[in-house]
């Protein structure tokens, strides 16, 4: 028995892979729910109600999906060019910190219409620079960027902690370690009244579509895909790998930095060290489930957000630990990898 690569994968199979992977991980997580002593079908019903059962639930799920679209996009763009950016968590935090520092009373003194774009750009630059460091280490010294981006996440989180207990500490927070808040003008407009949903969602969706356009319709997109598929052939065809990787890193790190700023300016208003419930790492799952397709990222981010918001409801109603959402999401990454293999190869005897 051996595996043989399919010359082309039918669209139905491409779409069936994530659906099958998610179904399998929900079934496996069902075993854990049963062990926790809860009725499985009711638990999943509660999860669905928790995520979509009311106007508030729906807006909360969409609010949660917003940063995941962006971190998912960051991973998808990078992985497609085989740049293993596992540092979206750190890039998220430097973006958030940039927004808080420049958007506070003492920051940029700009009117609202100019302040918001300026802060978003600053956050994207911060995220991009943070990813350029490990990329340059790879290009100059041959250091695998997986480990360096992972290690930098810890460094950045400590840096955030240092800033919000030091220069950026909010003196009015009763000693609680949080950054100074951004001014009211820097807060993103609400999309739906009486909810937390903000214009970060259309920004994320728009960026995903833009990325799809760039990847499928421009020379840069073709070159970056070629660099990922076969770096040697791409180099032989005259593609400068260094230039492509630097552009991809700016895009990937930039989008992840943007996610941090948007979370600060759209939801929290300030930075804490628990601003991200590992949005950066979860973005990797979002990207893989989407088969690294930018438009797919929108759908899979919504799925992952559904699991997290819905699991809170399930946990309150039935006492199943809400960590079940993390289990479902991480399991679906592993099942997706197998599903991708099965859809790209056929088994021959």
């Amino acid at each position: 028995m051996r595996l043989e690569r399919r010359s082309d994968t039918p669209l139905a199979l491409t779409l069936a892979a994530p659906v099958g992977a998610v179904a399998l991980s929900l079934a496996l997580a069902g075993i854990l729910i049963a062990i926790a002593g809860a009725p499985v079908f009711e638990a999943y019903h509660r999860l669905f109600i928790g995520a979509f059962g009311s106007r508030l639930a729906i807006t909360e799920t969409l609010t949660r999906a917003t940063p995941l679209i962006l971190t998912g996009l960051a991973a998808a763009v990078a992985f497609r060019a085989r740049l293993w950016n596992i540092g979206a968590e750190g890039q998220f935090y430097v973006g958030a910190l940039a927004a808080a520092a420049l958007g506070s009373e003492a920051g940029l003194q700009l009117p609202g219409y100019a302040l918001i774009p300026a802060l978003l750009v600053a956050a994207a630059v911060a995220g991009a620079v943070l990813l350029l460091v490990p990329l340059l280490m790879r290009l100059r010294f041959g250091v695998d960027e997986v480990v360096t981006t992972l290690l930098l996440n810890f460094v950045i989180l400590l840096f955030v902690s240092m800033m919000i207990e030091g220069p950026l500490k909010d003196p009015l927070a009763f000693g609680w370690p949080q950054s100074v808040p951004v001014v009211a003008d820097a807060m993103l407009p609400r999309l739906v009244a009486r909810s937390r949903l903000h214009i970060g969602l259309p920004i994320g969706v728009g960026l995903a579509m833009l990325t799809w356009f760039v990847q499928s319709r421009t020379t840069f997109g073709l070159e970056s895909r070629a660099a990922g598929l076969n770096p040697r052939a791409a180099a032989f065809a005259g593609v400068s790998l260094t230039r492509i990787l630097i552009s991809v890193a700016c895009l990937s790190g930039g989008v992840a930095g943007l996610a941090g700023a948007i979370e600060v300016m759209g939801v929290k208003g300030y930075v804490t060290t628990d601003l991200s419930p590992s949005f950066g790492y979860t973005g990797i799952v979002v990207a893989m489930l989407a088969g690294l397709h930018p438009i797919g990222v929108i759908v899979t981010a919504l799925f992952v957000a559904t699991m997290f918001v819905g699991a809170d409801g399930m946990s309150r109603a039935l006492g199943v630990p809400s960590f079940i959402a993390d289990v479902i999401v991480s399991l679906s990454l592993l099942t997706m990898l197998v599903a991708l293999l099965l859809s790209n190869y056929r088994i021959r005897r």
Binding site: L3, L32, F79, W84, I86, V146, Y281, I284, V285, M288, P321, F323, I324, D326, V327, V329, S330, L331, L333, L334, L337, V338, L341
Partner: peptide, 21 residues
Amino acid sequence: GLSQHVTGLGITLFASSLAYF
């Protein structure tokens, strides 16, 4: 023969979330 990078990260996410659960 799946990607060792991505599989490993998947194992890390799965093992730690199962541990917390």
